[in-house]
Amino acid sequence: MSKMSLLGTAIRSNCFARNSKLNQGFPSLLGDSPRRFSTEPQQPQDSPPDPFLQTPSTGLVYGKLSGINKHTLKTDIVNLLEGCNLTLNDVKVDYNWNYMPMAMMVQFRSRSAFDNAFKLIARKGRLYKLERADRAKWDILTAYDGKTVLLQGIPRNAIPEDIERFLSGCDFDASSIQTITKTAFPDPIRLAVVHFPSQTQAMNAFITKNKGFCLNNQILMRVLQ
């Protein structure tokens, strides 16, 4: 082979080697695994399942029932949701700072009982609205169970002994008297809650003492559920 032929072969080999290295470098600029184009639409990833839908049929389920007023009783709710196997212990009242009932928390024995409550409300209790609630909300609510009485209009200068004299003749726990002062316009509101041994004793105090006077103030009373 002539020298010119050998020189041409060497030049062509050198160019081929350099082109090969350049071609191998392009994927590293675009990523180790270049994307392949496809005309098929990408399938969306499945969203995580709703935890509520995974509630065991035998597990406790909690609901918040709104649309109640200050005259709504726990017995009203138990009767409304007849067939859901509720007792009075399965219902708690959610009061605001002024002890006005805002909603009721209901404890259902199963998911099927919760679903049944939805159907009952749609059929005969459309003034109410039932929604899923967290157990933590249920746990922090106090169950007064009709044994606690709220006294509204307590004089600002009244002391516990004045409240005891107002409730004289009633069977109550004097150590349970708790006074609460709330900021309001034009004057602060002073409340007191008193615990009684039974629902009967609490109702008796309401009947005999409601709208009576403590010092110079008329006292309005309400039994808390």
Rank of each mutant, 00 (worst) to 15 (best):
L22N: 15
A184S: 10
S20R: 14
K64D: 02
W138I: 05
I121M: 06
M104K: 06
G125Y: 01
F166Q: 01
Y62L: 05
I207C: 10
P101M: 03
M4P: 05
I121N: 06
V61C: 01
E131F: 13
F213L: 15
N23D: 08
I163W: 00
G25T: 05
G59F: 12
F166N: 00
T9K: 14
L220F: 15
A10G: 04
G83E: 00
N79T: 11
V194L: 01
I159W: 03
H71C: 14
L224H: 11
V91K: 01
V91A: 04
K129D: 07
H195N: 10
P188H: 00
A136P: 04
K70D: 14
H71A: 07
R165V: 09
P155E: 04
A202F: 01
G146Y: 05
S2L: 10
A202H: 02
N216C: 09
Q54T: 08
S175H: 13
T183P: 08
D32M: 12
E82S: 13
L141Y: 08
P49I: 11
V223H: 01
A10E: 04
M100W: 12
D94C: 03
W97D: 06
G212I: 01
L65G: 00
G169Q: 02
T208W: 10
I207N: 12
P44I: 04
R111K: 15
S5Q: 07
L29R: 12
F16D: 11
D139S: 09
K21V: 12
L88K: 07
R35N: 15
G8E: 11
I77R: 00
S66N: 10
N204Q: 11
I77K: 00
N116S: 12
A17C: 12
T87A: 03
P188G: 12
R12T: 11
M1E: 15
L6M: 11
K137S: 08
D115E: 15
R18V: 09
M4T: 09
F172A: 00
V61I: 08
Q225A: 10
P51M: 02
K147W: 07
R132P: 02
I68S: 05
C84N: 02
T9Q: 15
T142A: 02
E164F: 06
L30T: 13
I140P: 06
T39N: 10
Q199P: 03
A103N: 02
Q225V: 05
I68Y: 01
T39Q: 15
G169F: 08
A113E: 00
S33R: 11
